[in-house]
């Protein structure tokens, strides 16, 4: 398991990275934390001629708050998110989700932006980004483009990023005091790819949840937002009956993709369990 021969360039600016992507087209690949890319190379499932290492671009490594927006740079690692008090305070959903991402060694190198741009269907960050109403900021030869998270994930490993664009930053609106969040994931062993998971966010208003977002992952080629279940719950007093209604709505809108060990029916059942837990967590929310 050795990678094929490739050239390697470490750039110190976004412009240089974009220039290389333009010059080399399909033959160049961005290297961020390398937690997927290196394995793919070693498996010889890909043989790019050039790797463009963006890990030393300082601009991409920042977590900051600007007014009512939290910014998380593309090269911020999962571990940095795990340790960040700023994120715990302003986007606690991410703090809840991060322990579920693989294992410590991988979190130390794998990046927030790498995970979003890679768009694995079982990944936690894409679902969280949609649940939080995040905006992804891409830079290309024409300048900067902002893409809403719910428009970003197009299909299996396919995003709205153009071939010569680089994901540089993500903007997350800082929630109000009423915002409650929940994260649930089921995996065979801790750190495995999720069998099913949910990232949820809502505004709590007494006994009600308003504008809930229930975003499932590992059940479809892209994160799945359960819009029917959301509208069942939206603005109504939470009762066990209402939760059952939401579950029934989810059954009507979600038809999960199976994998080798879990049938579609299994994943659907697990998704209903996760929805129930998430609604309870939101209503108990903090």
């Amino acid at each position: 398991m050795k990678a094929p021969v490739f050239d390697y360039v470490r750039v110190d600016s976004v412009d240089k990275a974009i220039g290389l992507l333009q010059a080399h087209g399909d033959d160049a690949k961005i290297l961020a934390g390398g937690q997927t890319m290196m394995a793919t190379l070693n498996m010889r499932l890909s043989s790019p001629q050039l790797l463009v290492d963006i890990s030393q671009i300082d601009q991409l490594r920042k977590i900051s708050v600007n007014g009512s927006t939290l910014h998380i740079g593309a090269m911020v690692t999962h571990s940095e998110i795990e340790r960040s008090e700023v994120i715990r305070q302003h986007a606690p959903l991410l703090s809840m989700a991060v322990p579920h991402i693989a294992h410590k060694a991988i979190r130390n190198r794998g990046t927030w932006g790498g995970s979003l741009a890679y768009a694995d269907p079982a990944a936690e960050w894409p679902a969280c980004a949609i649940a939080l109403g995040a905006t992804l900021v891409a830079q290309g030869p024409q300048g900067i483009r902002r893409i809403s998270a719910d428009q970003f994930f197009l299909d299996l490993y396919t995003t709205a990023l153009a071939a010569d664009e680089l994901l540089i930053d993500v903007e997350i609106p800082i929630g109000s005091r009423q915002q409650v969040v929940a994260f649930q994931e089921l995996a065979r062993r801790h750190g495995d790819y999720a069998i099913a998971g949910i990232a949820a966010c809502a505004q709590r208003d007494g006994e009600m949840l308003r504008q809930p977002r229930f975003v499932f992952f590992a059940v479809a080629n892209t994160p799945f937002q359960a819009t029917r279940a959301q509208s069942v719950v939206d603005g109504k007093v939470l009762t066990p009956g209402l939760v059952d209604e939401a579950i029934a709505a989810l059954r009507g809108e979600l038809n999960p993709l199976s994998d080798l060990t879990n049938t579609s029916a299994t994943k659907l059942h697990l998704s209903t369990v996760l929805l129930k837990r998430a609604i309870h967590a939101l209503s108990a929310g903090h």
Binding site: M43, P121, A122, T158, L257, D259, L260
Partner: peptide, 17 residues
């Protein structure tokens, strides 16, 4: 082969796409 080792987590999704 290596394909098998890697697993088949996304076979259905890939097929669909």
């Amino acid at each position: 082969g290596k394909l098998g080792q890697i697993g088949s987590r996304l076979i259905e999704g890939s097929a669909k796409k």
